[in-house]
Design a protein around this nucleic acid. Structure first.
Lengths: 151, 151
DNA sequence: CCAAATTAGTTGTTACAACAACTATATCTC
DNA sequence: GAGATATAGTTGTTGTAACAACTAATTTGG
């Protein structure tokens, strides 16, 4: 891959990096029958049992349709179960299953070691700084997007 | 959006940031009938006329199927044309049309100003550093991935 | 110089993401 | 408390990405 002028855009660089990192991680967890995005959602379900889908969507940074579909997949695979909420008949609470818990427990250390492996090229200070800058960018872009939609 | 514990993973942060940035930019160029990914490909075609698809794919950081489909879309919209290569009958050369050139000329400054607007939250030094770190990460992950496939 | 390997491109499939439109329920306001 | 509004979730559509399987053409190596 030449990727001549790869740096023509920040978005390009961000996208390329994200995809490679995701693909690398995907290879590491394929054996558990989960994609990185399914893992991101399962992680949130494990974080707090009984969350409703809207809350999971918010925490996972995904929109409602995407969350619905990923949760459906996770349910079909037996990693989570849904139950109609008693307080609000519009919503469903999501619970992790035994199988889901076991799988999550197995994947979590793999995630950490994968990040460690990938971040090997830089010092801890650089890594922290990059995270901090990315978060700044993320927050700023979020507010720009929200501003836009208000109009 | 709470995004409680957003930082649980570098991949998560990278993905969320990339998507927001892309969406923001998408809103800015929608009027030209192009998505950010289509723009990324058109940019490469404009960069050098007569490239074959494989070369465009490499430069755009996309795989062959994705490039084929995006180029088909660009051709259907009248931004590029394909012509069978005379040197190699397997391949097609891609050329930008007048309409494609005009559109690219209009979008390029928008891309720059969008990046400038988004990067406003940090200093030029921070921006350069972030780019450099991302590139490091990108290169390292690329080599990890290539390593993996050799086996 | 010919069979084997490689390369350019396409097509099919699965998974996400964004957006819009929709149903059902809940909340707000007068 | 009834109508307007907002919210939770689903479904449909389009675009992109990854992977596998395929065709056709080219290159390589004995």
């Amino acid at each position: 891959m030449h990727q001549k002028g790869l740096d023509h855009s920040l978005g390009f660089l961000l996208g390329a990096t994200y995809r490679k990192l995701t693909n690398f991680f995907a290879g590491r967890i394929k054996e558990f029958g989960l994609t990185p995005e399914q893992w991101a959602v399962l992680f949130r379900v494990r974080e707090e049992d009984g969350l409703i889908q809207k809350e999971i969507a918010d925490r996972a940074g995904k929109d409602k349709p995407t969350t619905t579909r990923i949760l459906d997949t996770l349910e079909a695979k037996g990693f989570v179960t849904k139950r109609a909420s008693e307080h609000d008949r519009r919503s469903f609470q999501v619970f992790i299953t035994e199988q889901g818990k076991e799988t999550a427990d197995a994947i979590e250390p793999i995630e950490y070691s994968t990040i460690a492996e990938i971040a090997q090229v830089m010092s801890i200070e650089e890594y922290e700084l990059m995270n901090q800058l990315l978060r700044k960018l993320n927050d700023h872009t979020t507010s720009l997007l929200e501003h836009e939609k208000e109009q």
